[in-house]
């Protein structure tokens, strides 16, 4: 998505007082305690390992570190990750194809 479109969307959102994640297709991450992670608006998985899961999002990828990680369910735009989550790293990268 080109930059001016993003800006326009941001402007529309701010003038109409709409949440940004709806307009811009941004991820919304809910972290419950250290054991459950809810990611909305994801764009797919890049890596699944016991201690590291990489989730693709609109403008980059989310790197989730932890122990005995497991994706409980992966729906089209919603994902629940279970396990001991110690850190989440948000890497902004346009395209977000590679780690």
């Amino acid at each position: 998505m080109s930059r001016w479109l993003t800006r326009t969307k941001q402007w529309i959102g701010s003038t109409l007082q709409l949440p940004d994640d709806l307009l811009l297709d941004l991820p919304r991450v809910t972290w419950i305690g250290s054991f459950l992670l809810h990611i909305e608006n994801h764009k797919g998985l890049l890596k699944v390992e016991d201690h590291c899961i990489v989730v693709k999002v609109f403008d980059g990828f989310l790197k989730i570190n932890g122990d005995s990680l497991q994706i409980q369910s992966m729906l089209t735009d919603e994902m629940t990750i279970k396990g001991y989550v110690s850190e989440i790293i948000y890497n902004r990268q346009q395209g977000g194809e590679d780690e």
């Binding site: 764009k43 797919g44 998985l45 890049l46 890596k47 699944v48 016991d50 693709k56 497991q70 994706i71 409980q72 369910s73 992966m74 729906l75 089209t76």
Partner: peptide
Amino acid sequence: PVVLQRLYQQSVVLHSIT
């Protein structure tokens, strides 16, 4: 990951990915 990506594009629901 490519397989997972393709499955995501097909909007296939997956469970307990480990």
